[in-house]
Simulated assay, not measured.
Amino acid sequence: MIKKLSIASRADALSWYCAILLLGLILLGSIRENSAADESTIRGSQLFDRPCDEIYVVGEGETLHTISDKCGDPFIVEMNPHIHDPDDVFPGLVIKITPSNPRKFLR
């Protein structure tokens, strides 16, 4: 019986070491993932200077005026006949953007 307890205690200790090792690898992977994400983060005014795609989906709190300023397209209403009321813009609305002065992405 002494051998069985000894083997069981070794197996128990080995399982704890494996659990600790697995937890350490998960934490290490998480740290690396976060540091890689920080390098590609857009900060400050860079968000407003990035170019807009031709197809744009309106986000929460955006208006045609803010989208026009951000994307450089003063003729959004004229290019989107499905917008009947410029004040009735809602999140998820898909619009076509044709920038008159393309902006460059800052790095």
Rank of each mutant, 00 (worst) to 15 (best):
L106A: 10
D12P: 05
A11W: 01
I26R: 01
L25D: 05
N101W: 05
S6R: 13
I26M: 03
E39Q: 14
G29C: 00
R43C: 12
S15R: 06
L28P: 07
E60M: 01
I55F: 00
D49K: 10
L106K: 13
A13C: 04
G72A: 13
C71D: 04
S45M: 12
C52K: 14
S35I: 01
K104Q: 08
L23A: 07
N101C: 15
G61E: 07
E39W: 04
C71R: 12
V77R: 10
R43Q: 15
A19K: 00
L93P: 01
L27H: 02
I31E: 06
I83A: 08
D85A: 09
D73F: 05
D85L: 03
A36M: 09
E54S: 06
A37P: 08
D69T: 06
R32W: 02
S35H: 06
D87C: 06
F90H: 13
H82G: 15
L47P: 10
I26S: 02
A13P: 05
F90A: 04
D38R: 07
M79I: 07
R43G: 06
C18N: 05
K96C: 09
V89M: 08
R107K: 06
E54D: 02
L21N: 11
N80R: 09
F48Q: 12
V94Q: 13
V58D: 02
F75Y: 15
E54A: 09
A8R: 08
S15H: 00
P86T: 03
K96L: 02
L23S: 07
G29I: 00
D49I: 10
P86L: 07
E33T: 03
L106I: 10
W16S: 13
L21P: 08
S45Y: 02
I95Y: 02
F105D: 11
N34R: 08
V57N: 04
P81R: 14
H84Q: 15
F90G: 13
I97E: 12
L14I: 04
L27A: 07
A37R: 08
L21Y: 02
A37I: 05
T98A: 15
